[in-house]
Design a protein around this nucleic acid. Structure first.
Lengths: 324, 324
DNA sequence: AAGAATTAAGTTATCGGTAAACTTGCAAGC
DNA sequence: GCTTGCAAGTTTACCGATAACTTAATTCTT
C-alpha cells in the first residue's frame, strides 16, 4: 500500500520510505499492472477502440494517424480494428473490444449491424462516429457531409459545361460515404439534364490500380464521357495514367476530377481538380471529442470539419457547341 | 461458476441449465469482462502491441495491414503505437503497453533505447522485431536484409554503366533500415569507383512531395548525377515528376530507381526500376511468428522474407563514352 | 503533562472470472 | 441395503491496485 502511494505521488510517506520503494522498483524491474487498476474499477481504462475500413486507401491512413497521434498525447492507446468495409467484421471486432472495457470507441462510418447497435447502446460508453457526418449519431459525430461534397463537384462540372459524365469508384456491401458522394454528385448532374455513367471496381481498395482499370473498363463500354469523377485522388491519378496510355489528353479529350486532395496530387504537373478535406483533422477532432466525453465534458454532437473544392487544370470550360 | 462453464462450453452442466444461462445472458445483455480473466492470470491476454514508425509511408501501412489482418484471424488484437521514428516515443509507448500485460510485441526496427531494452528483457514475453532482419534479435526477427537490397541496386546500376549516382531519402534521428540500404548501395557503387551524392529531406515522411523537392534541391547543387536512387517508390515518383517539370527525360537525361515496388508503380507508363518486397507478407509472418511463440511453439529466430530487383524502363544502359 | 491533532504505515475489502476443491443428488452394481 | 461412481452444481481462493479504514508513533496545544 505504501509502495502504491509512492508510485502515485499521493503523499503520506516519509522521504526515506520513498527512496526505499523506488530503489526496490528499480532493482526488481517492477512494472505496474494497469489491468488490475482498471479491473478494480478505481480508474477508467485508457484504451480506445478504433475501427478503420482499410489502410490501402491513403485517406484512412491519414485519419488513423490523426487519431492515434492525438490519443497518445492525451494518454490513451488505440486498439485497432480493420473491418474490410464489412459490418460483420465490425460487429465481431466490437464484441471483442468491448470485452476489454475500453474508455470509448471511434468508429468509421455511420452504419452498423443490428447486433452491433445493441451492444454499443448497452455498453454505455462514449462513441465517436467519424467520416460521414451523422445527423442522429449514437453519441458524437465528426466528419463532413459527403453528399454535399459530391453535389458541389457535380455543380462545378455542370457550370463548366459538362453534361455526360461518369463516376469510377469501388464497391462494397455497405452503403458508405463514397456512396453518399456519388448520390450528391448524381443529383447535381441530373438536376441539370446531365447523365452519370457508373463504373465500379467490385470489392477492391480505392487506390491507384483500380482507378486505372476502372477507367479502362468504363471507356471500353463506348459510353460518351466528357469527364470522370473518381472516388478519390489516387484512383483519379490511376485514371489519368490510363488516359495518357490511351492517347487521351486531359483535359482536352476528357476531364478528370478526384476527391480528398491526397498526397499524390502534390507532385502532379497538372493541378488535379478535387475536394480538399483535412483527414488528419478529422482524426484529431475525433480523439479530442472522445476524450472530452470520457472526462464527462460537454461536447458538440455533430462536428463538421468542412471541405472545399480545389479547382484544377484537369477539367476545362466546355463550349456548348462542342457537345453532342 | 456454472454460468462461467456454460459460456466456455466446458461441460459439467445440464441442457436445461445451459438454456437458462444463455437466456439470462441475452436478457441482461451480458458481456464478459476479459480484463478479469486475464488479470486473474488464468489465461493470457490477446493483446499484441504493434509499433510502427508512421503511416504516411505506404510501406508501413501495408505492413500494418498484414499484421492486423493476421492477428485478427488468429484471435488477437493490435494495440497501435506510432512512434514517429523516435526511440523516446517508442520507449514511452513500450512502458505503457507493457503495463497492459500484452501477449507479445511486434516492433518495427532493430534499435531500441537502453531503458526500452531493459523493460523488454524484464517483461519476458515474445517479441518480434520486423522490417530489418536482425542477426541477434531480442527474440524473433522477420524482414529482409536492407543492406543487401541496397547493394543489389548499386551493383545493377554499376553494371548498366552508371558511376555518378545520388540518393534521395528522408532522415531521422535513428539509424534505420533506409540507412542500411544506403550503406549497401554506397558500398556497391564506391567499390567500382563510383560516387554517391546524398540528399536528405530532414525529418519528413518518405512520400511523394519530399521526393519532388529533394530532387529539386539535389539538382540545384549542380552535382553531375546520372541516376538517382530513392528511399522508396513514392519518393521516386515525386522525383520523376520533378524531372518532367524540369524538362529532363527519364531515363535519357537521368535514371530513376525506387524501392519497395509500391502501389503507385502499378499505374506508371514507364516501368519503375525498384526492389520488390512483400510488405504484407512481412506483417503476416510477424503475426504468425508471434502467435507461435505465445503458444510456446518452436519458431525460427530469423525469418527472411526476401526481395528481388525489378528491372524497369527508368534506367538504361549507359555507354562508357558518354560519361565525363 | 494530558489530550488533541498530525503523520506514517499497515489491514481489509473489492473488482469478475475461473481453477481447484468440495458438496449434493441420483443411479447402477453387488 | 449399502457402497461406488459420476454428473451437476456450489464454495473458496486468487490475481494486483487501491479506497477506506485502523493503528502506532510523533508533534502540537493549552
Amino acid at each position: 500500500m505504501t509502495a502504491s502511494r509512492v508510485l502515485r505521488n499521493e503523499g503520506g510517506y516519509s522521504e526515506a520510505t520513498r527512496d526505499r520503494v523506488l530503489e526496490k522498483v528499480e532493482a526488481l524491474g517492477y512494472l505496474p499492472n494497469r489491468l488490475a487498476t482498471v479491473f478494480s474499477g478505481d480508474s477508467r481504462s485508457t484504451f480506445v477502440g478504433v475501427s478503420i475500413p482499410d489502410l490501402g486507401n491513403e485517406v484512412f491512413s491519414q485519419v488513423l494517424e490523426g487519431i492515434d497521434g492525438k490519443l497518445r498525447s492525451l494518454g490513451y492507446q488505440s486498439v485497432l480494428g480493420l473491418t474490410q468495409h464489412t459490418l460483420e467484421e465490425e460487429e465481431s471486432w466490437i464484441k471483442t473490444v468491448l470485452s476489454w472495457q475500453p474508455a470509448g470507441l471511434i468508429l468509421t462510418g455511420r452504419s452498423h449491424s443490428r447486433r452491433a447497435l445493441a451492444m454499443l447502446r448497452g455498453a454505455g460508453l462514449p462513441i465517436v462516429e467519424i467520416w460521414d457526418l451523422n445527423s442522429s449519431p449514437l453519441d458524437v459525430s465528426v466528419g463532413i457531409n459527403h453528399f454535399d461534397s459530391g453535389f458541389e463537384m457535380g455543380r462545378y462540372l455542370i457550370e463548366l459545361g459538362y453534361r455526360d459524365v461518369a463516376y469510377v469508384g469501388t464497391s462494397h456491401d455497405t452503403a458508405n460515404a463514397a456512396t453518399a458522394r456519388l448520390e450528391g454528385f448524381t443529383k447535381a448532374i441530373t438536376a441539370s439534364q446531365g447523365r452519370v455513367t457508373r463504373q465500379f471496381c467490385l470489392h477492391d481498395t480505392a487506390t491507384f490500380y483500380p482507378g486505372f482499370y476502372g477507367t479502362e473498363q468504363l471507356l471500353a463500354t463506348g459510353a460518351a464521357v466528357e469527364c470522370i469523377f473518381y472516388q478519390n485522388d489516387s484512383m483519379a491519378f490511376g485514371g489519368m495514367q490510363y488516359c495518357e496510355r490511351a492517347g487521351l489528353s486531359v483535359p482536352g479529350d476528357i476531364g478528370i476530377a478526384g476527391w480528398g486532395d491526397m498526397p499524390v496530387a502534390s507532385v502532379l504537373n497538372q493541378r488535379l481538380t478535387s475536394i480538399h478535406v483535412s483527414h488528419l483533422k478529422i482524426g484529431q477532432l475525433a480523439s479530442e471529442a472522445l476524450v472530452a466525453r470520457v472526462s464527462g465534458e460537454a461536447c458538440a454532437t455533430s462536428n463538421d470539419v468542412g471541405f472545399h473544392l480545389v479547382p484544377g487544370d484537369t477539367v476545362r470550360r466546355v463550349a456548348q457547341s462542342t457537345r453532342r
